Amino acid sequence: MSTAAAAPVRTGAVLADLLPAARHRYAVDTALVLGGAALTGIAAQIAVPVPGSPVPVTGQTFAALLVGTALGARRGFLALAVYALVGMAGMPWFSAGSSGPGGASFGYVLGMLLAATVVGGLARRGGDRSVLRTAGTMVLGSAIIYAVGVPYLALSTGMSASAAIAAGLTPFLLGDALKAALAMGALPASWKLIGRRG
């Protein structure tokens, strides 16, 4: 019974591939990329200052990981590239309405670009189709963001490595766990719903 329900969802697909496209694939892909960039920019405006840190807690990282997972590596990369480039050009949609290159938190934007690409590639291999796989995908994506963002924070502010970890990693771990839990529920549930409709 379960095999028959899942059969219409081909392997190697991400959620965005299941949208009807037919002759208009380029237009659909363009809309998805621009929509992913806009979603990340909107989520970045949900910003809560962290005492003692120049980096706020935002919805930006969660949005970036969802965009990468739902769109796949290529479209996820393009969406976050548009987000980064337009923000660098002056669009006030980085965290808390900021814009422009540089700044203490810009490394996280660069990390999101890489993370969206990686989680998109994992999603195409089934990384978002079960709770455990989704958890692993989200943890790896978050780790990539911090692997770029924290060293950038240290370099841009002159902080020591331990101070950058204390200001740019430790305060965010609980929130990231909650975001991963949301993704662990939402993404596999979306695949199950699609399988039933198929």
Rank of each mutant, 00 (worst) to 15 (best):
S2W: 12
T3W: 10
T3Q: 15
A7N: 12
G12W: 09
A13W: 13
A13P: 05
A21Y: 05
R23H: 10
R23M: 09
H24W: 06
H24P: 02
R25K: 13
R25F: 02
A27R: 12
V28Y: 03
V33H: 03
L39C: 12
L39T: 13
L39I: 14
G41T: 06
G41E: 09
A43T: 05
Q45V: 07
A47S: 13
V48W: 13
V50Q: 13
P51N: 04
S53L: 06
P56S: 05
Q60D: 00
L66H: 02
G68S: 07
R75W: 05
R75L: 08
F77S: 11
L80G: 02
L80H: 02
L85V: 15
V86I: 15
F94E: 03
S95G: 12
S98G: 12
S99Q: 10
P101Y: 13
P101E: 03
S105H: 11
F106S: 14
F106M: 14
Y108E: 08
L110N: 07
T117G: 08
V118I: 15
V119N: 03
G121S: 01
L122Q: 13
A123H: 14
R124F: 01
S130F: 05
S130T: 15
G136H: 11
V148K: 08
Y152F: 15
A154I: 06
M159W: 04
S160W: 06
S162E: 13
S162C: 00
A164C: 08
A167H: 01
G168W: 11
L169K: 11
L169Q: 09
P171G: 02
F172S: 03
L173E: 05
G175K: 03
A177D: 04
A181S: 05
L182V: 12
A183Q: 06
M184I: 09
G185M: 07
L187V: 01
P188R: 07
W191F: 11
K192S: 09
K192D: 09
L193E: 10
I194D: 08
G195Y: 04
R196M: 13
R197E: 04
G198E: 03
